[in-house]
Amino acid sequence: MAWLVLVLSGVLEAVWAVALARSAGFTRLAPSVVFVVALALSMIGLGYALRTIPVGAGYAVWVGVGVAGTALAGMLMLGESTSALRVLSLVLVLAGVIGLKMFH
């Protein structure tokens, strides 16, 4: 259960990062609210997961999922570059996340 919460918290990290970009410096209400809610839920989930998952593996997985999700959202929703090397880099991040889960 903790690993599922951790991955979902990583996804919420990507949500708050995209909402932060869309908030235009907190001048737009809806993305600002999404940012605050997603940030709070992400931190609560991370804290819950770290009760049973070692902090090194847990934090690395949380950040890895967030980084990959944010980069993917940037490519799909924000018009950022989708070069083969960027996609390969995301695959490597995800491979690292899977490795940390498997060998913790």
Rank of each mutant, 00 (worst) to 15 (best):
T82L: 05
W62V: 02
T52N: 02
A40C: 10
A21G: 15
L50P: 05
V87F: 04
V11T: 11
V65P: 01
V15W: 01
G56W: 07
A73Q: 00
V33Y: 12
V61W: 14
L94I: 13
A14V: 08
G79E: 13
G64P: 00
G74P: 14
S32T: 06
V37W: 04
G96M: 00
W3P: 01
G66F: 00
Y59P: 05
V11Q: 04
V33Q: 00
E80F: 11
G69S: 13
A49N: 03
V18N: 03
M77A: 02
A49K: 00
L29F: 09
L72A: 12
A40K: 08
L100Y: 08
E13W: 03
S42G: 03
M43L: 08
A40P: 09
S42T: 07
S83Q: 14
G79F: 11
I98Q: 09
L29T: 10
T70F: 10
I53Y: 06
L46D: 10
L90N: 06
M1H: 07
S9I: 08
T70M: 07
G99I: 04
A84S: 06
V61H: 05
V63T: 03
A24V: 02
A2H: 09
R28N: 08
L90M: 14
R86M: 10
L4I: 14
A14E: 08
R51A: 15
H104M: 13
R22S: 15
M102P: 04
T82F: 09
